[in-house]
Design a protein around this nucleic acid. Structure first.
Length: 423
RNA sequence: GGAGAAGUGGCAGAGUGGUCGAAUGCACUGGUCUUGAAAACCAGCGAGGGUCACACCUCCGGGGGUUCGAAUCCCUCCUUCUCCGCCA
């Protein structure tokens, strides 16, 4: 959620930057400013009414004490009127505030100046590429065929137990999955991220805090009996650790990492792009997350990108980094870098990580602040990224590392798997 | 799931209808003293809205109510603790 004072002072900039998302925000912005003015005006009126009422109540108290009940009762007529007034004003204030909030919930984050304008993923800007694309043998297969051939992932079994998009990992497939989780967590903790284990279901307030609610509830599984949501990413519970927190400046930065399963309803896609591991309703992900001082958040974003790079380099997977264009940028993000691994057998790029700076957008909803050197409360910046998402890394490994002898496990993972081939 | 108790500032903990945003202690910040530190002493020290700055307003788990007036009384929800039941 954007901050109203910021909108007020940077109206033109906000509109120009939101245009990168192909949004004409002119109307929303001026409406927000009007609503805020009305809100403040009403608030002042209400405050004055309450001030008078408070003063009179004190007077009544003193009159009663000194035995002047008649005078006290005389004043009560006036307080009754004030009470009515304040009731009406409170209602008006609540209405205005609600309208304003509803509007603010609809306005996405202001993209960073470096975000390219554009509509679709074709307008994303490639900023880095590394790793050799392997030359595969003639009989190379896509990962869903490999999964079947070596009996390591069973999609049909998942269909039976739950439904499409809930695969069962078996044998060395399950072990490889567990190895990747352990490997990623070790990498992240070695880089200074504190490991956490967080709930996999969250309440409504948490969904609001990170921006999944109120607009995107359709993307989450909802346990209506208890009004809880299955997390779509560890970002939700992990970021909400800091909801309603006022940190000390020297407590920053906070850096966390955590493994969780992720649940996504993901309606609407079909075809080869969602085959196999490409798109699932349940998948595993290891997330990194930072709470940063505003002056350092872009440095931190670069650090996170460098960290993910180092992992992919060690796994020797061919990958590229994209700076997302305005049209492809997530609702809450100011700047996002996507990592994609090249899947040789599918001849396409698979997104495996998304690293974002949300600036104060989430912090404003979360009321995540720190006490700055002037002793004032200031919103912190939040960032997060996948480090890394499992299924597509797994797909990348299966497809890129297939040989005539079987799947050759990357050296860095062998200590975690305990085997070097799947065959 | 059943019965009981409780939720107050960073922490501990007073306050049970009137000048209480809230005693006191600890922690923290600044100062005096000291070669330095500690101790002692003095001062400051919750959050949000609002204002150029004040004033002023709101907040004592959340929401609602009674009253001229609520941290204090009532309703409701949530959470924690104790006992019982069930259980990985």
């Amino acid at each position: 959620m954007l901050q109203v004072p910021f909108i007020r002072e940077n109206q033109d900039l906000v509109i120009a930057r939101l245009a990168k998302r192909n949004i004409d925000a002119t109307k929303m912005i001026s409406e927000a400013i009007e609503l805020d003015e009305e809100r403040r005006k009403t608030q002042t009126e209400l405050d004055n009414t309450l001030a008078e009422s408070n003063a009179l109540s004190k007077e009544i108290g003193m009159l009663y004490k000194s035995g002047k009940a008649d005078q006290a009762n005389a004043i009560k007529d006036r307080t009754a009127q004030l009470k009515e007034d304040s009731k009406a004003l409170t209602e008006k204030l609540n209405n205005t505030s609600e309208k304003l909030e509803e509007l603010l919930f609809k306005i996405p984050n202001v993209p960073h100046e470096s975000v390219p304008a554009g509509n679709t993923d074709e307008d994303n800007e490639e900023v880095f590429r590394e790793g050799d694309i392997p030359v595969l043998h003639e009989n190379a297969l896509p990962h869903w065929e490999l999964a079947k051939k070596y009996d390591i992932i069973d999609f049909e079994l998942g269909n039976k137990i739950t439904g499409a998009g809930f695969p069962v990992y078996k044998g060395k497939g399950a072990k490889l999955q567990r190895a990747l989780i352990g490997y990623f967590l070790d990498k992240n903790t070695a880089a200074g991220y504190q490991e956490v284990q967080v709930p996999h279901l969250v309440n409504e307030a948490s969904g609001f805090g990170t921006g999944q609610l109120p607009d995107k509830e359709g993307q989450m599984y909802h346990v209506t009996e208890d009004n809880l949501y299955l997390i779509p990413t560890a970002e939700v519970p992990a970021t909400n650790i800091f909801r309603d927190e006022l940190l000390k400046e020297d407590e920053l930065p906070k850096a966390l990492t955590g493994y969780t399963p992720c649940f996504r309803r993901e309606a609407g896609s079909y075809g080869a792009h969602v085959r196999g591991l490409n798109r699932l309703h349940q998948f595993d992900k290891v997330e990194i997350l930072r709470v940063e001082h505003p002056t350092r958040s872009y440095q931190a974003l670069d650090d996170m990108v460098a960290h993910v790079k180092s992992i992919l380099k060690e796994l020797k997977l061919p990958y590229r980094i994209l700076r997302l264009c305005g049209g492809d940028l997530g609702f809450t993000s100011a700047l996002t870098y996507d990592f994609e691994v090249f899947s040789t057998a599918q001849d396409r790029w698979l997104e495996i990580s998304s690293v974002s700076n949300f600036e104060t957008f989430q912090a404003n909803r979360l009321k995540l602040r720190f006490k700055n050197s002037n002793g004032k409360s200031e919103l912190a910046h939040t960032l997060n990224g996948s480090s890394l998402a499992l299924p597509r890394v797994l797909a990348g490994i299966l497809e890129n590392c297939q040989t005539e002898k079987g799947i050759k496990i990357p050296d860095a993972l062998v200590p975690y798997t305990g085997f070097d081939y799947i065959n």
